[in-house]
Design a protein around this nucleic acid. Structure first.
Lengths: 145, 145
DNA sequence: CTTCGTGCAAAAAATTTGCATCCGT
DNA sequence: ACGGATGCAAATTTTTTGCACGAAG
């Protein structure tokens, strides 16, 4: 799999008639800077501000929606909080184990899709991407429970 | 795996010092009624109302949080909307394929965890459950895109 | 009777939208 | 120029919290 970088994302966007604005670029950069970790909309907004001040929250949301729809980022939520996002198809494809107590995450390199995919398109669906998340407790919280 | 039903959930709750109230029971019943499908907090509230009118939204949220923390339900969100919930360890363990356009879902019976689990606890995490979601387009939306 | 759970009301947080204007192509 | 993108401000929607009271074990 090709290593994802800014140019690939920009290509994808252009291919879909989206224009390149400094705000959009700043948002993408913020996401890239967080490769391998989750990030919330608020944090993205903050990071984006430092790259292009004045960027509005609504712009961030509008762009996150576009990026998610294009399968470039994934959205989840931990422990009832705000939604969190992460780049998909990161340079090293991976998944997470998430501590249900403190929200700490660690990376799992194994990917179930390697063994699957077959009889799934039967359902009439076309699969474009996937999410695999493990939940449990980190060693610290496990003791407390 | 044992077939999940009301009594199992009630056992689990009691084992953790939670009391049984008609509201809580109504919420659990609403979730059970939706085995195999996702349901949003709003819908759960509605369904709960018909079983025990007067149940407050805050009660629903408080209970969903408890149930999620106990690993009885899972929480996700589709297309930027509200969070949606589903019973975990349903009588037939399964996962979903979710249409990124219309939100339609179908059930996938395959479970990646069957092939995994090994070297995961290395990270210092104790795995209690997992979520595996596929994203793509249903046949109808695929044509439109 | 002790602890947990609930309703109510209010607040906070997160997300979305309309509109006029601006900017990339 | 054209059409998409943005900022602003306001509205929605979702979720959380404090508190006094009621109910379960």
């Amino acid at each position: 799999m090709r290593v994802i970088d800014k140019s690939i994302i920009e290509e994808k966007l252009k291919a879909n008639n989206y224009k390149m604005t400094p705000q959009r670029r700043a948002i993408i950069e913020a996401l890239l800077e967080h490769r391998g970790r989750f990030i919330a909309a608020g944090e993205i907004h903050l990071k984006t501000l430092s790259r292009h001040r004045g960027t509005d929250f609504s712009t961030v949301y509008r762009n996150l929606e576009i990026l998610e729809k294009m399968g470039i980022i994934h959205k989840t939520s931990i422990r009832g909080g705000a939604a969190i996002y992460e780049l998909v198809c990161d340079y090293s494809h991976h998944h997470h184990i998430i501590c249900k107590e403190c929200g700490k995450t660690a990376i799992i390199n194994a990917c179930p899709m390697e063994h699957l995919i077959e009889n799934i398109e039967d359902k009439g669906f076309t699969v474009t991407d996937h999410k695999f998340e493990l939940y449990g407790y980190c060693s610290k919280c496990y003791k407390k429970c």
